Simulated assay, not measured.
Amino acid sequence: MTTTASPAAASGTFLIGGDLPVHRLGFGAMRITGQGIWGDPRDPAEAVRVLHRTLELGVTFIDTADSYGPDVSERLIKQALHPYPDDLVIATKGGFTRPGPGSWVADGRPEYLRGQLDKSLRNLGLERIDLYQLHRIDAEVPVEESLGELERLRQEGKIRHIGLSEVSVAEIEQARETTEIVSVQNRYSVADRAAESVVDYCEQEGIAFIPWSPIATGRLAAADSPLATISKAHGATPSQLALAWLLRRSPVVLPIPGTSSVAHLEENVAAAAVQLTDEEFESLTKAV
């Protein structure tokens, strides 16, 4: 069990689905795989150390997917952390096939999703996935069919909660006609606001918003930028400021920065302690 004195606890707590408490600053487990998110990591021992260190730092939310590797990320999580602490929530995703390194093809067929869910249960050593997310809506399959199968799996006790990834507000509303949606995972950062309306909707509805690529800073990290200036004032890195901005952006935001390095992990989690003033937050918000 983690303790309230742990670094990640400084990020605050959110109840996913109203019943799964997690520290808001989590860990994305995509990067503990090989180049192109394919195959084993270059340094498997370091990947295992990263996973151990996530728990030592108080991280209670790990996000992965069957397509990371594929299967490599899930299996490493089991290898490193099983049996899991009672307070650890592991989320995974299904809905992509992987023809090769760097290649991703959506597949939302009900039979495919059922098979992938069962494989994720084996990979992770679980009897139920706390949060199972449709990795992409498949344009060739009615979303009601994809989510209808996930709802059946939920009723069978194999899934606790259902989430979505890379969706619009309209798509979330459509999905909610088929099943309850407790989380949305879109690309979003201080430098990339394309999902702004989705964040606002999730906050309004009490839905967890899980930004991927959360520490992208782009031109905002230039030497004369507000991000660089405020970073220096806090003795922090631009990446830490980007995470601090996300944590301040909305109480439903759960950043999941990923890495294959223990040192980088520690830097990311330390961002939970960075407190932006109102003026600093507004300056970063207006910088884009």
Rank of each mutant, 00 (worst) to 15 (best):
T3K: 11
A5K: 07
S6A: 15
S6H: 13
S11R: 08
G12V: 14
L15K: 00
M30K: 13
R31F: 15
I32Y: 04
I32C: 02
D40C: 04
P41E: 04
D43T: 06
P44K: 04
E46Q: 13
A47T: 04
V50S: 10
V50C: 14
L51M: 14
R53Q: 15
R53Y: 15
L55E: 01
L57E: 15
G58V: 12
D63R: 14
D63I: 14
T64P: 15
T64R: 14
D71L: 11
K78V: 09
K78T: 12
H82Y: 14
Y84R: 00
V89G: 10
V89E: 09
A91H: 11
G95P: 01
T97M: 13
T97K: 12
P99H: 07
P101H: 05
G102K: 05
V105Y: 04
A106H: 08
D107K: 03
G108D: 00
G108P: 01
R109L: 00
Y112A: 07
R114N: 06
L117E: 06
S120L: 08
G125Q: 07
G125L: 12
E127F: 05
E127I: 05
R128Y: 13
R128A: 12
I129F: 10
I129Y: 09
Y132N: 05
Q133Y: 09
L134S: 05
I137R: 00
E140K: 13
E145Y: 03
L147C: 03
E149T: 05
L153N: 04
R154P: 11
R160A: 15
R160L: 15
I162V: 13
L164D: 01
V167Q: 09
V169P: 05
E173F: 00
Q174R: 15
S183P: 11
V184A: 11
Q185F: 13
Y188T: 05
R193V: 12
R193Q: 14
A194R: 14
V198I: 13
V199W: 13
C202A: 10
I207V: 15
F209A: 07
S213W: 07
S213R: 01
P214S: 08
P214E: 03
I215L: 14
A216G: 11
R219C: 03
L220I: 03
A222W: 00
A222H: 00
A223Y: 01
D224G: 00
L227K: 04
T229Y: 03
T229L: 08
I230G: 01
I230Q: 03
S231A: 15
A233F: 02
P238S: 05
P238C: 06
W245F: 12
W245T: 04
L246R: 07
R249V: 02
S250M: 06
S250K: 05
G258R: 09
T259G: 06
S260D: 07
V262A: 07
H264V: 02
E266G: 00
E266L: 03
E267I: 01
N268K: 02
A270K: 03
A271Y: 09
A272Q: 01
A272V: 02
L276F: 04
T277N: 02
D278P: 14
F281L: 08
E282G: 02
S283Y: 02
L284W: 02
T285N: 08
T285E: 10
A287L: 02
